[in-house]
Design a protein around this nucleic acid. Structure first.
Length: 676
RNA sequence: GGCGGGGUAGCUCAGAUGGUUAGAGCGUUGGAUUCAUAACCCAAAGGUCGGCAGUUCGAUUCUGCUCCCCGCUACCA
């Protein structure tokens, strides 16, 4: 284990096709920021790098939908995202972007070196090509009928209706979304990184890090067990980093090739000394990511770096799981999210409240759930009741009794030794938790200072001492203010805005970790500026508003997603007359063997009893439909389904949730009645 | 289907190379108190540690099976 002299901290490059929400913050950026702030407070050499990932297919699709250029789309979101982070105090040293020329250049150099040294394999494969648009089609650009559920409109990589993972060639009757034409298969050359050749080195790398979190090493080992395969590092696309080779018009680097290089290129824009942060053996690299990025950061990027040969591999990859919202998965497309820019509008100045709640509920070991009710509780019973209250008590007591000046320390209440021991006792667990990326635990430990303070005041009772032994009361309040100073330091990584307010009130210039444990940090006689209430209670109606807002978007999304299908082309009166619609009665119903959906019905049509198969088994049990009068199409050509001849079709209406409703007469009528 | 992660108090989560009374915060209940945003402080109640079986003197902790949640991945059509 080398001795590390500096730390390079990266937070995942976020994809620049939408604003950011609490899940992003909780999963990646907040833990990274807490860690970095902790290191800086110890005066460690650290760089904190992140930015937006601005290449790839989804951005081109979004641009096309909005009638903009891809560059316009990413310019917009780069600003939105960067501003949100900045407002929440995520203290990047640099926040870059992969569309930057500096990034293009470094990525190309990286690629070129691997190419020149023969680290890639070239392979020509057949890909769908749109002749009228004159370009190869990414999976998402191809739609067709899903081979699994036969719904039209499935994408080339996945059918959103049934969730099946697809490859474009599996689609039935594929169409290009660019032109609507049928694409042709055309050979194209791409460059693959033979991950299989790096399998052994990667296994050694991973097994050299037994300290990695179980969710990280678990997933990585799962991939290694399956055996790695060559992976294309280039794509046929015209939005991205151009391949630095001749005759590669219309080809770019795969986003997952250039994105991690972004960490490096962004560092190079921060400092001329950037190389040591990535190449020196005494530099420690830490990637903060969400669990969706594990494979790229623990296998693919390391393989790239091994192939390149000059860069250090990550020492730690503290990937978090996902945060849900009110029990449902956060989803940008379904608008099921708490957006940071909206939060700031609704809760101005309350960045630290969200930071606190998200840290306390952080998905460190498993998926977690953010609820507004938790948010309210954390605010009211921890920030207000424990921290805010303690700080307020200390300041108010000194304001009232000592003219806002820190009193002298003389004889105390006899509790001071014990109180300081309690503070000492939390320091090691606090540092350990921070160093081991256990920020939830660390936050609890840091808050303990305020709890100790509340208890100390309750037991020392300075408001009583002031009447009888004022110098003792003064001593107690001196200690109390030292505790406030401790809190301002210990909480800085988590609550930077609050911490700064406290430092201003105490006249402290900076938060230095080494000052914790120093109970003479604030000198007697110092004039205090009461910061006022640090946090305010959140009443039920404010919280309810947020819950209502979510419910409302949920409803709207449901409505938007359930569009009324368009009316089919005009049918002539004769067409209509052709259909013989009748009322009949189900006299018998049985499930069809080997079928999930079908019920075999015997329907009395007034003349005879006919057999009709109906795809309603998932909605109705046979006994439920027996005896029902229904409407059916009587002259539909008979058809054999699952070996049984079906003579007609039962008419059903389909609801928004896919539920089925019988169309039956509103009052009983004779079987065989004609419908017109 | 395979693999990985997780299923521990009402809620959010810790923890145990197997061993006398399984922890924290919030919530609840009771008490004390009034400097403080009815906050703080003290105390208590509350869990057959997902289910079944096995190994063991002893398992919630190990093994097997099983159910549920999350993720990755395959195959079939």
């Amino acid at each position: 284990m080398p001795n590390f002299n500096r730390t390079t901290v990266t937070a995942a490059l976020i994809y620049a096709n939408g604003p950011i929400h609490i899940g992003h913050l909780a999963g990646c950026y907040l833990p990274a920021d807490i860690y970095v702030r902790y290191l800086r407070m110890q005066k460690k050499d650290v760089v904190f790098v992140s930015g937006t990932d601005e290449h790839g297919v989804p951005i081109t699709i979004k641009a096309q939908k909005e009638g903009k250029t891809p560059q316009e789309v990413v310019d917009h979101y780069y600003k939105v995202i960067k501003d949100s982070f900045s407002e929440f105090g995520i203290s990047f040293d640099i926040y870059g972007r992969t569309s930057d020329p500096v990034h293009h250049k470094l990525s190309q150099e990286f690629f070129k070196k691997l190419y020149d040294e023969g680290k890639f394999i070239e392979e020509t494969t057949n890909q769908f090509f749109d002749e009228s648009a004159n370009q190869f089609l990414a999976d998402r650009y191809i739609v067709g009928e899903c081979p699994s559920c036969h719904q039209p409109g499935a994408y080339g990589d996945q059918c959103e209706k049934c969730g099946t993972t697809l490859s474009p060639t599996e689609l039935i009757n594929p169409k290009s979304t660019l032109s609507g034409n049928s694409p042709i298969l055309k050979p194209t050359k791409n460059w693959f990184l033979p991950l299989d050749q790096w399998q052994k080195s990667l296994e050694e790398y991973v097994s050299g890090h037994p300290e990695w979190k179980s969710n990280v090493s678990g997933q990585v080992k799962s991939w290694l067990q399956e055996g790695l395969k060559p992976r294309a590092m280039t794509r046929d696309l015209n939005w991205g980093v151009p391949i630095p080779l001749p005759d590669t018009e219309g080809k770019v680097l795969y986003v997952w090739f250039d994105a991690p290089i972004g960490y490096i290129s962004m560092t190079s824009q921060l400092t001329d000394d950037w190389e040591k942060y990535w190449k020196a053996e005494d530099s420690r690299i830490v990637h903060f990511i969400g669990k969706d990025n594990i494979v790229f950061h623990c296998l693919i990027f390391p393989a790239m770096c091994m192939a390149h040969g000059e860069y250090q591999l990550a020492d730690q990859v503290p990937a978090n799981e996902f945060m849900n919202l009110e029990g449902d998965k956060i989803s940008t497309s379904r608008n099921w999210a708490v957006w940071l820019h909206e939060y700031l509008e609704d809760f101005p100045g309350k960045q630290d409240v969200l930071r606190y709640t998200l840290t306390a509920l952080s998905p460190e070991t498993k998926d977690s759930d953010f609820t507004w009710s938790d948010f309210q509780t954390k605010n009211n019973s921890e920030l207000v009741a424990i921290l805010g209250n303690f700080v307020n008590r200390a300041f108010v007591l000194i304001d009232k009794n000592f003219d806002s000046k820190v009193p002298e320390k003389t004889a105390g209440a006899g509790l001071e030794e014990d109180m300081m021991k309690q503070v000492q006792a939390i320091l090691e667990p606090l540092s350990n938790a921070l160093e081991q990326y256990k920020f939830r635990d660390a936050l609890v430990a840091a808050m303990e200072i305020a709890r100790i303070g509340n208890k100390y005041l309750a037991e020392a009772e300075p408001w009583k001492l002031i009447k009888t032994e004022p110098e003792k009361a003064g001593t107690v309040l001196n200690y109390a203010i030292q505790l406030v100073a401790h809190a301002s330091i210990a909480l800085e990584p988590f609550l930077p805005f609050t911490s700064e307010k406290l430092r201003k009130a105490l006249g402290l210039n900076q938060a230095e970790w080494s000052k914790i444990g120093d109970f003479n940090l604030i000198e007697a006689g110092t004039s205090l500026k009461n910061p006022g209430l640090l946090f305010e209670k959140l009443e039920d109606d404010v919280i309810q508003k947020q819950i209502d807002k979510l419910q409302e978007t949920k409803k709207q999304m449901e409505l938007a997603n359930k569009k009324v299908p368009e009316i089919k082309e005009t049918a002539s009166f004769d067409d209509f007359l052709k259909m013989d619609l009748r009322v009949g009665q189900i006299v018998e119903a049985v499930a069809v063997e080997k079928s999930k959906k079908l019920l075999q019905l015997k329907v009395d049509d007034g003349i005879k009893v006919r057999t009709i198969l109906s795809g309603i088994a998932e909605h109705f049990k046979p006994e439920e439909v027996k005896g029902k009068q229904v409407t059916f199409l009587a002259n539909l050509a008979p058809r054999k389904i699952m070996g049984v001849e079906s003579e007609g079709m039962i008419l059903m209406a389909e609801g928004q949730e896919g539920e089925l409703v019988f169309l039956n007469p509103s009052s009983p009528i004779w079987n065989g009645a004609k419908i017109s």
